[in-house]
Amino acid sequence: MKKNDEIEKLYGRFSKEMENIPLPSEDELMQMLDRHDAQGVRQVPFVPVRRRRTPWRYAVAAMVAGALFVFGWLLWPQGGSPSPMVAEQAESGEQKAESGRTTQDSIIPATIAEPEIIKPRQLASREAGNGERKAESEKPTADSAVRQEIVVPVVLPAEQLPALAETEPADTTAAPQPSAVDSTATSPKPEHEIDDYPERPTIKETEDIIKQENSQRALRKRKLSGKIKSHDKDGKSFIDKQKNEKDGVRVVTPKSTPPPSAPMPHYIPMGNGQNRIIWY
């Protein structure tokens, strides 16, 4: 490897320049080393970093865990009943709703009607209608300004219902609601006879609907995949093709690709459910 090129020359110039830089003599170097030794080996003070930091970490972790536990205990429902905080929130929400509602009540005192007996089923339907009623109650109308009634719903177990239904007075003040108990009826209907739902389709009707839907879905799928075409490549309609096939005329569509030269397997049915494979 030759060294006589530009880079070597440049490095030579660089070396010459380095020789011009003054460097400490032997005595100076000895003094420097003595000074270095006098300073001693640089000792890094031993600090048990992990041991010092660990209690802090544990303390912070414990505090976070404690906070999470307390919040979890307050917010999580215990044994099905709402936790104290949730109950408080619910109460405050009710109070707020009441305070919002009684702006008109403060002008005209409200009368408290007798407790109405509501079955669990009715309660569900009533709750569904609560939204509409709330929206209506928010609108100030002439009637609502005159008189407002507070209805306190009471849910009773099913055993007490027939006995109470007999003694129930006719509620004329309450708004008409979809209730199963007819106040005009002489005797209340048993629970199993009450039917709030519309007529259900029979099993046959359901099957027909499912079949229809399935066929429609399959048709849609085939249309989307492009399997159903109105015309073939030659421009003949498929209806004509099917008709010809029914009449005994076999329609052969020419293949675009020539038959392969390599032998292909041909399956000939043997009659016993098995096929014989012949390669040609």
């Binding site: 660089f14 070396s15 380095m18 020789e19 830089i21 003054p22 460097l23 400490p24 170097l29 420097m32 080393l33 270095h36």
Partner: peptide, 30 residues
């Protein structure tokens, strides 16, 4: 001179800093 050249080529220091770097290198070698 070898120490000085290595000091000059491996750092972006000016000429005045080279003597300091040289001393550092000598201490490390010691």
């Amino acid at each position: 001179r070898l120490i000085l050249k290595v000091c000059a080529l491996y750092t972006n220091s000016c000429r005045s800093e080279l003597s300091d770097l040289y001393q550092d290198a000598v201490c490390a070698l010691w």
